[in-house]
Every structure is written in structure tokens, then in C-alpha cells.
Design a protein around this nucleic acid. Structure first.
Lengths: 156, 156
DNA sequence: TCTTAAAAGGTGATTTATGCCAAATCTTGA
DNA sequence: TCAAGATTTGGCATAAATCACCTTTTAAGA
């Protein structure tokens, strides 16, 4: 973990709020001149602290009306070599988040699709065909309260 | 839902991949000249399709080592007026995502914190004190496979 | 086909990004 | 404590991008 001082944290907070803010604006906010500020941003990008910049898109507005949290249970013997399943989840664009979870299920995947019919196709054609899956439980989001909000960064 | 043509979809895809790409680059990618491309981006922002631009930050790299999916059950009589609970979840910076869910639990919240001790404090001081909560179940992410990936946009 | 509205394309002034260099600050070891 | 070395900051100049304004092109309806 790289050493992040208060300038870096401030830059990250600014870029979480508005990733298209100009370097000049960010520099003013963190009380640096533009030159060192831009250098720090580039360093944060190169070191992997900043993985990229994403437009935050309203799912409903683009016709993605259904979010599903899928609990995926893996068969007993498939637990060690679940790398293939993880790679498969990563490769699926409908899956916007995926985690290995303690407790009842093994994987938890957040799936974003147009509607129930598209989800049904996704489930039967992409998820259920994965090898080593023993059980799948779908939890449908009735309402989306909050998504993709900025992280609360530890202060330095 | 506004009418989004192939240019808009292309712009949104470009901004999901790299929200700091220049307007000129995006224009080239979608085969528009810079002027109408920038106009479309501003329209997408004004109409709410684009909610903002966020730096995608590696949680581990900033010391946020623990992601928890919290199932929050609401008492029978508190179901109708759960607006206060929703507002509370929205206001908590540790909660990066929150949904009303069909099935066993009522809310599903994604919580991102430094470690278990911070999570315990969050749970006891912020979640358990909410009125109308009947049960809380914490599912800890053993491993983060994928977060905040671009949405798969319906094509036009 | 003609008219009109809407969207695309071009242009130029202003702002921003970014490499380079000097000044300032911080570190470290004697 | 002090000085040498290393790191970081700030200023400057140039190339690039943004964005408002205007003209041209495209599309639709009568």
C-alpha cells in the first residue's frame, strides 16, 4: 500500500466527486499549484490507486431497469479451483460486481439487465451453464436506493 | 426515458471506459465532429442520464480492506414508512450501495470500511440504532472479484 | 419539390495540460 | 546542529482542448 498523504486523499476525494474536474480546479481545492497536483494524479494512476474514471450512468434512464443480486453456490469439490468461475463472472458485462462471500452462498454477483426476460436468458444461458454450480438464488432489487457512491476514504 | 441513438450510446460507452477522455477523442470514436459530440455530452448530463463522473479507486490500495453485504430486516409495522431508513442509508458514506430487495431481507446494503473493528463500530453505532430494524445479517466479502464495472448498455 | 426545424460541422478566443527548470523543503548522517 | 543530497513544489512556455457562435447540411412534413 503506497503512502498517501493529505494531498493525495484530497485529490482522490475531488476525483470521486467529479472525475472531469480540471487539474486547475483540483489543485485549488487541495491547495497545491497545478504542476505538483497533476504529477500526483499521474502517480496515483500509475500505482494503481486510481483504476480509471467512469461516467456514473442512471440505470433506469438507459433502460436497465432490473438489478439482481445472485447468490451462487459452488459444489463441494469445485471450491478450490473456482478461478475459472471467477474469470467467467469477470468476463460477463451484465455482472457489475462480484464477491466471494462468507456464509451461506459462495459468490455474490450484482447483475444489471433490461428486464426479467433478459435476466431469465442470462440466468439459463450464461450462469447455469457454468461448471461446478450447485445452487443459485436470485434476489431482485425492488428499488435502487443508492449505487456507486464515493468511498469514504481514511484520512491521513 | 429520453431517446438515445447510437451516437449517445457510443458516447456513454466511451465515458464509462474513460471518463477523462477528451471530447475530441470521444468524437473520433463515435464518428462525430467535436462540436455536436460535446453538445450531446452536455445534454446527457442535463437530462440526468449521466449522473456524474467518478474516479474508480482500488479499495485495498486506500486501506479499505473490508466489504460487507448487510441484509437489514425491517419490523412489520415499519414497512410503509421506510423512507427515513432509506434516507439514513443514503447519508452514510460507508454505504456505497443500497437496495430494497425481494425475498428474505428488506434492505441490502454494501458497506465498505477499513477493517472488522471499524465495521463493528459502524454496525453498533450507526445501523443498529436505526428505528424499526428487526434483524441484521452481515455477509463478509472474502475476496473482491469485480466492482463498479461499466454497464452493458442496450444497443440502439 | 419546397419549407422549416433540427442536428452537424467549422472557427477562433480562452482555458487547460504538460514538460522543463529553478527554488524550496525535507531527510539523513556525521 | 549542520550540511549534502534527494525529493517536491512552483513558475513558465507551448501545444492541445474547450466552448460559444455561426454556417452548412440533413431530415421531415406539407
Amino acid at each position: 500500500m503506497p503512502n498517501l498523504d493529505k494531498f493525495d486523499i484530497g485529490i482522490l476525494e475531488a476525483l470521486q466527486e467529479d472525475a472531469r474536474a480540471t487539474n486547475v480546479e483540483i489543485a485549488e481545492r487541495v491547495n497545491l499549484s497545478p504542476s505538483p497536483c497533476l504529477r500526483r494524479i499521474r502517480n496515483l494512476e500509475k500505482s494503481g490507486v486510481i483504476r480509471g474514471y467512469r461516467a456514473d450512468i442512471d440505470r433506469k434512464e438507459v433502460g436497465l431497469g432490473l438489478t439482481v443480486f445472485v447468490e451462487i453456490k459452488v459444489g463441494q469439490h469445485s471450491r478450490e479451483n473456482s478461478d475459472a468461475q471467477q474469470a467467467a463472472l469477470i468476463a460477463m458485462p451484465e455482472v457489475t460486481g462480484a464477491f466471494l462471500i462468507s456464509g451461506t452462498a459462495d459468490f455474490l454477483a450484482e447483475v444489471v439487465v433490461e428486464d426479467l426476460s433478459v435476466y431469465e436468458r442470462f440466468l439459463t444461458e450464461k450462469l447455469l451453464v457454468l461448471p461446478g454450480i450447485s445452487d443459485i438464488r436470485s434476489n431482485f432489487a425492488i428499488r435502487t436506493i443508492k449505487t456507486g457512491s464515493p468511498l469514504k476514504l481514511p484520512q491521513r
